[in-house]
Design a protein around this nucleic acid. Structure first.
Lengths: 228, 228
DNA sequence: CAAAAAAATTAGGCAACACTAAATTGGCAC
DNA sequence: GTGCCAATTTAGTGTTGCCTAATTTTTTTG
């Protein structure tokens, strides 16, 4: 069975739902109505209604009261949106002087308006990058994506040096803090101290020391020099 | 009386209506319902309905059965959209390798999605251009625009040499023809022949000769070396 | 200037998407 | 295993923005 070309143009709303569901069902857990509502800032009944429509469109499968999983067609759309979003972010930072804490909102709107042709031109201008400014992988045009497995900075053992590869937040203030602290992809950090009970970590970054909270350190993803 | 800040975000539709009405009421003629419908590809009743809403929002004034004129607030919105559209066109041609016949559709979608900040960054990258690739003037951020008066190529007297400054169409095929014929802004052309009754013109462009129809020649706008 | 044609408006609907309030279902505690 | 709480769905509404059909107004024309 070949995948249907999916001719009808999708609305912004539909694209946002699919993207949200994709994010929520990584690990192939079904996404729950309330999680989707939470992520999109909508009421649960709105989500219920849209979920029915999307399942009628063949973009997802819905088991009532159980949750929602994307179909292949739905996943294709979601990955296309993620590709657009991340390439737009990369382009805005690379060519238009945006900082990594301000690109998200702009990309969030542009991703729905941009043509396939424009996306490919941006990709070309950037040299087909594989990661966006936050270190998030950019899906290829065929929908393939390499989700690498990283270790959260919060879980790096005391004394070890790790290299930051990805920052898993789009919250502007956090990103600004991280940048000012020097905690950006590509940087090497050593864990100097780590208070118990989800307490703060003290890091050495080059010559400087920096303290950050446990929660934030969960969102800073690293590779370890000798992985275990 | 100061101009109200107009806080509410406008929809794509509203922005398109205001842009269309602005275009139609140059020369300060009121725009008719059917002209708006024609330009936007909508039915007349749809336009009637939207016109009422827009007049309630204070964006235009409507005299029933007579037509529609933008208010200062409406004109401000229209000019902002036109600025966006033309800057986007200029940017896509200047930085992303678009040709002048393909930028229109892309800009038509992006103009609704782009932030003020992004527009200003594009303008900066381009060096605050005053004209887009078709020679259309780009309104300044304060809404000022210099609509220069040009002479259509169709009205240049026989034997005279004129310089093309602007091409008044967004029709892709026409633009492609004009480009291939060498009839782009900045080019000097001499009118060699002009058949009567809106017949074709024969032009000399550098060393080459080119015949174009009267209708198209109406859309190619020029300045005459010694105006009259 | 009256009748026909053209233009505009009103009336009545529909689809997408959001909401709140009310009903239903499922899982867990006891 | 019954009862309760949380999650979910259904019911009923509102807004935007489009449509067609019917009506009204304006313009044109013989």
């Amino acid at each position: 069975m070949t995948s249907l070309p999916l001719t009808e143009p999708l609305t912004r709303s539909v694209e946002d739902y699919l993207k949200a569901i994709y994010r929520l069902s990584r690990g192939s857990q079904p996404a729950s109505t309330s999680d989707i509502a939470e992520l999109l800032g909508l009421s649960a009944p709105s989500v219920s209604g849209m979920v029915r429509r999307l399942s009628e469109l063949g973009l997802l499968e819905h088991v009532p009261y159980r949750g929602v999983v994307l179909t292949a067609a739905g996943r294709r759309v979601a990955l296309r949106m993620i590709r657009r979003h991340r390439l737009i972010e990369a382009y805005l930072v690379g060519y238009l002087g945006y900082s990594w804490d301000t690109v998200h909102d702009e990309a969030e709107r542009l991703e729905h308006a941009v043509s396939e042709a424009l996306i490919e031109r941006m990709a070309l201008a950037l040299g087909n990058p594989r990661f966006d400014p936050h270190g998030d992988p950019i899906p290829a045009s065929d929908g393939s994506i390499d989700e690498l497995v990283y270790t959260p900075l919060a879980e790096i053992p005391l004394g070890e040096t790790a290299e930051i590869r990805r920052v898993d937040t789009s919250h502007a203030e956090r990103l600004r803090f991280l940048e000012q602290a020097g905690l950006t992809p590509g940087t090497k950090v050593t864990v100097r101290e780590h208070q118990p009970f989800r307490g703060p970590l003290t890091l050495r970054i080059g010559a400087a020391e920096q303290v950050i909270g446990h929660e934030l350190a969960q969102q800073v993803l690293c590779i370890r020099p000798d992985p275990r």
